[in-house]
Amino acid sequence: MHELSIVLSIVDIAEEEAQKAGVDNFSKIVLEIGSQSGIVLEALHFAWSSGVKDSVLSKAKLEVSQIQAIARCEECQHEFNAETLYDSCPRCNDAFTELISGKELKIKSLELE
């Protein structure tokens, strides 16, 4: 259940930004989360309400933009949507593939009313 740690790290960053901006709370936060980032979205949503309690994010609407993992085949350079970390290349069936996106875990933006 590291999602709670993640929520609390998000709160930390938001608190810092609130101080810089001189505000008491944010109305919306947009996260970018890769489909192979190791975050289970259901668990993140579950941890959200307790994690943001009494913070600058307590009233913020949570929007998650999920980024589809894309892998590139090292053999034929074909790029494809990766559903797991061990998908073989759908074109040449080679198992040597590298993720080129899908590990993202970031705060894209914070919104003030």
């Binding site: 901006a21 109305s27 996260l31």
Partner: peptide
């Protein structure tokens, strides 16, 4: 751990801070 104690001004409307910050950055 401090909360922002500034004054949010009511005339600011939907200001967006484009952060692009890694959550595991620290």
């Amino acid at each position: 751990h401090t909360h922002g104690h500034g004054h949010s001004s009511s005339h600011q409307q939907n200001r967006i801070i484009e952060l692009e910050k890694d959550i595991l950055g620290s």
